[in-house]
Design a protein around this nucleic acid. Structure first.
Lengths: 211, 211
DNA sequence: ATCAATCTTGACTGATTGGTCAACTGTGTT
DNA sequence: AACACAGTTGACCAATCAGTCAAGATTGAT
C-alpha cells in the first residue's frame, strides 16, 4: 500500500527532475517567452502532454526552475559566513561563486534574465531573503571596517562588485568564449580568473599588501 | 525636387527614432520573443501597421536596436584611449561606463539579453569589432605591466571585471533598486558607487597606494 | 487644380503555441 | 481475473501575433 505510493513517487520525482533540468537549459537559452513547451519536451525526450501532466502550466514550471536556482544561490551565500578574517571569508565566497558560474551556467542565466526583466516571478525572493541576507553581510563588512581590517568603502558596492564579477563568467559565457577563440575556458583559465578576481579585490581593500 | 526628399527623409528619420526608442524600452523589459509589435507600436503611439511601414520585420527592428547599442558601447570604449597614465585611463573608462549604465539602462539590458541568449543576432560584432578592441586594450594593459606601472595580473580578467561591475548597475537595476528600499540610486549614490569601483580596482592594481 | 510620392491605418490571415482531453498502457493488489 | 490508479500520448482548440493589404489621407511640386 505504502509501497505503491513510494514506487510511483519515485517515477514522479525522477521525471520532474528530468523536466526541470530540460526546462532550465531551454529557459537559459531562450528566456521565458522564447521557450516553448515543445522545446522543453523535446529536450526532456517526452511528449509535450506528458510535461503538462507533471507541471500544470509553463509559468509553474518556470517558477520551480527559478526557485531551485535561488536555493543554490543561498547555499553559496552560506560560504560567506561570519568570520573575523576578511581575506579568508572573501576568498571562500569568491571561489564558491566562481564555481557556481562554472558548473551552473544555466541557472545563473535564468536568474539574470528574470532580474533584467524586472523579476516578475521572484520579486518576493528579492524583497525578503535577498534583502535580509544582504543587510546581514553589509553589517559584517562594516565591522571589518570598524576594526580597521579593511579600508573604509561602502560595503554594498563591494558586494555588488563580487556578484557582478563572478556571475559575468556564467551569464556572459558566450562573449567570454567568443573572445577566447570560441573555446570554453580551461581549468587553468578558470583558476587564474578566480585568483585574479580575488587578488584585485583583496588588494583593493587593504592598502598594505596582497593575500 | 531635392527638397521633397529632404522633407520626407526628415519625417522618416524622426519616426524611425521614435520607434527605435520605443523598441529599445520594450525589448529591454520583455526580451525579443516577449515583446510584441503591438506593444512597441503602443509605446511609440503609432498604429502597428505604421511600425511595419518603417521596419519590415521585428527582427530587423531588433537588429537596428542592438546595432545602436553597440555604437554607444564603442563610443565609451574610445574614452579608454592610449595613455601611459593607467590611473587616469581607468578612471575615465569606469566613469564613462557607469554613466552609460545610468543613462542608457535599456540599451545595456538588450545587449545583456542578447549575449545571454548566445548572441544570435550580433555574433559578427562580437567576433570582429569586440575581439579587435579587446585585443588592443589587453596589449595596452600588458604594457603598463611591463613598465611596472601596475601589478602583473591577466589583463583580460581585469577588463571583464570592469565590464561586469559597471554593467551590473544597468542590467540588474531592478535588484539594485529593490535593495535600495525600492528607490532609484540618488546622484550621490551613483557617484559613490563609481568612486568605490574605481578605488577598489585601482588600489587592487597598485600595491603602493590609492589614486 | 492635378498629380505623384510618401505616409497612415483598420481589417484580415496564416502560423504558432499553451493548454485540454479522452483513449490507452502498465503495474501492483486482491 | 478484475480492478484501481499513475502515467502516456496523439489529436485537437482557442488565443495570440507577425506580417499583409488595399483604401485613403497628406504633402509639395508643377
Amino acid at each position: 500500500m505504502g509501497n505503491l505510493k513510494v514506487a510511483k513517487a519515485h517515477i514522479r520525482a525522477e521525471n520532474e527532475r528530468i523536466i526541470l533540468d530540460a526546462a532550465e537549459a531551454i529557459f537559459a537559452r531562450h528566456g521565458f517567452r522564447g521557450s516553448t513547451m515543445q522545446m522543453i519536451a523535446d529536450q526532456a525526450n517526452l511528449p509535450k502532454a506528458n510535461v503538462h501532466y507533471y507541471f500544470a502550466s509553463k509559468k509553474e514550471l518556470y517558477r520551480r526552475v527559478v526557485e531551485q536556482i535561488f536555493g543554490i544561490w543561498l547555499q553559496a551565500a552560506n560560504s560567506f559566513e561570519q568570520s573575523d578574517n576578511p581575506a579568508e571569508a572573501l576568498r571562500r565566497y569568491i571561489e564558491q561563486k566562481m564555481e557556481i558560474s562554472r558548473l551552473r551556467k544555466n541557472g545563473s542565466k535564468v536568474w539574470a534574465n528574470e532580474v533584467i526583466n524586472g523579476a516578475p516571478i521572484i520579486q518576493d525572493f528579492l524583497e525578503n531573503q535577498l534583502t535580509e541576507w544582504t543587510d546581514g553581510r553589509i553589517e559584517m563588512i562594516q565591522k571589518w571596517i570598524d576594526d580597521k581590517k579593511i579600508r573604509p568603502i561602502n560595503p554594498r558596492w563591494l558586494l555588488y562588485m563580487i556578484w557582478a564579477t563572478t556571475q559575468h563568467y556564467a551569464d556572459f559565457t558566450h562573449q567570454v568564449e567568443t573572445l577566447n577563440a570560441a573555446e570554453p575556458l580551461s581549468k587553468e583559465q578558470w583558476e587564474d580568473a578566480t585568483e585574479t578576481v580575488f587578488q584585485i579585490i583583496w588588494a583593493g581593500l587593504v592598502p598594505k599588501s596582497g593575500t
